[in-house]
Nucleic acid binder design. Structure first.
Length: 113
DNA sequence: ACGCTGACTATTA
DNA sequence: CTAATAGCCAGCG
């Protein structure tokens, strides 16, 4: 688990790609899963490098602790994030994921088994 | 090497 | 409710 052979980014990308469709997760959750709890900024920063990766990283499934689409401005265009989320069946209102609590996917609870 | 920046989070006022 | 503060750590000039 959490192979440290790869760069920190690759670990973040790996977890992000493990997020099931129609689900969302937070930076802090990924950070904690990687053992860098408290450094949620590193996750977001890693996502910044995700742009152009192969396979593409579903960064639109990564939101902040409030379920807010804080990173939408980093996409091709800000509305793309909400567009992709709604496309997967996730309701988004006021840049915020509706029922975020129900759609929340925690790697530390789903993957560590 | 130093300081600034940042897709975060939590606490305090 | 908003604003400020602190902790976090990798990249860049």
């Amino acid at each position: 688990m959490a192979t440290k052979d790869d760069s920190f980014f690759q670990m973040v990308f790996a977890v992000a790609r493990e997020v099931p469709p129609g689900r969302v997760t937070s930076y802090g959750a990924i950070a904690k899963y990687l053992g860098t709890s408290g450094s949620a900024r590193m996750v977001g920063w890693a996502m910044n490098q995700a742009h152009g990766q192969s396979p593409a990283v579903p960064a639109h499934r990564i939101v902040n602790r409030n379920g807010l689409l804080t990173g939408k401005h980093h996409f091709a265009y800000p509305e793309q994030m909400q567009e992709l989320l709604e496309k997967e069946g996730i309701e988004v209102k006021e840049d915020q994921v509706v029922l975020f609590q129900e759609l929340y996917w925690d790697p530390t609870k789903e993957l560590e088994l």
